[in-house]
């Protein structure tokens, strides 16, 4: 397999129709195998790496929370859908941590499994535990809508590798948003009970929304909240649900997830996610 040096998108977005990437393992151990990871002139390499870690952490931790649903969902069909979404996000995490690792001189596994809580930079929305299916789809709607807007902006970013990762992610996130929106409308516009529980789920999730739009020096691109709100409002209106009016989750000393300050929930995720890798350091699989 070959690629031109100036267009990693062709490589990442290649349909792989004939070489069956997954079946035969091409690029399996290195998500950016064959990609030129040199940082272009004029891009701050450390800033880029830190930002990729943040975006990678969002996907990695949320993927883990979605994986927890597998074997617990009421229908086999939904289970496959949620597992697919978790796998998409895990793929994004691998590429983003791989991109950061190429700059920092660390592997994706070192970044995923050998950092402690305060070294993770994910937003606090992704680390929480879903109490029910309504929270799963409510949180996914918020997350996918926000991340899709962000990735659409990143497709024209000055680092071609990050731009290519974002371009690949846009199609995935569009589907995640669609899946979540379908369910939010179905439950919101369903029975009296499903409506109540969907509204309660949104109320629980909404405290985490403010943080997504918080100005932070590490954010290399910003999106206007209105851009995301217009999508969310459309879905909520279709579902007959109210946009929650709840106070945002408090900052701790002016800091939040992007600064490495997390809720208690992240510790549980890391304990489970990292235990095998930490018990067998340098193991390969």
């Amino acid at each position: 397999m070959s690629m031109s040096d100036d267009n990693p998108y062709d490589f990442l977005a290649d349909e792989h129709s004939d070489d069956h990437r997954w079946a035969y393992g091409t690029g399996f151990t290195d998500p950016l195998a064959g990609v030129d990871t040199s940082v272009p002139d004029g891009v701050d390499a450390y800033g880029l790496a830190s930002y990729c870690v943040s975006l990678g952490d969002d996907a990695l931790i949320y993927s883990h929370r979605l994986q927890e649903w597998v074997t617990r969902l009421p229908e086999l069909e939904e289970e496959t859908a949620v597992a697919n979404i978790a796998l998409d996000l895990l793929g994004q995490a691998r590429m983003l941590l791989g991109r950061a690792g190429a700059v920092l001189g660390r592997s994706e596994d070192q970044l995923a499994f050998f950092r402690s809580e305060s070294q993770f930079h994910n937003v606090r929305l992704v680390e929480r535990h879903d109490d029910d299916f309504a929270e799963l789809v409510g949180r996914l709607l918020v997350f996918a809508t926000w991340r899709l807007a962000l990735f659409e902006r990143l497709t024209s970013f000055s680092d071609p590798v990050l731009a290519a990762i974002a371009t690949k992610g846009v199609a995935e996130l569009t589907y995640h948003r669609d899946y979540a929106a379908q369910w939010v409308v179905r439950l919101g516009d369903g029975t009296e009970l499903s409506h109540q529980r969907m509204q309660a789920a949104l109320d629980a999730v909404w405290a985490f929304v403010d943080e997504l739009f918080r100005a932070h020096p590490g954010e290399l691109v910003t999106i206007a909240r209105g851009e995301v709100d217009v999508v969310l409002d459309t879905v909520l209106a279709t579902a007959g649900l109210d946009r929650p009016d709840v106070p945002p989750l408090a900052l701790i000393g002016g800091r939040a997830g992007r600064d490495g300050v997390h809720t208690e929930a992240l510790g549980y995720v890391l304990a489970e996610m990292q235990s095998v890798a930490r018990a067998h350091p340098d193991a390969t699989w």
Binding site: S17, W22, D178, Q182, R186
Partner: peptide, 22 residues
């Protein structure tokens, strides 16, 4: 075949169950 509440949901389930390998 698969189970779904309606045709729209069935289309999405079909996408998730039967097109995973492109």
């Amino acid at each position: 075949s698969l189970h779904a509440a309606d045709a729209e949901m069935a289309l999405r389930h079909a996408r998730d169950l039967y097109t995973r390998r492109n």
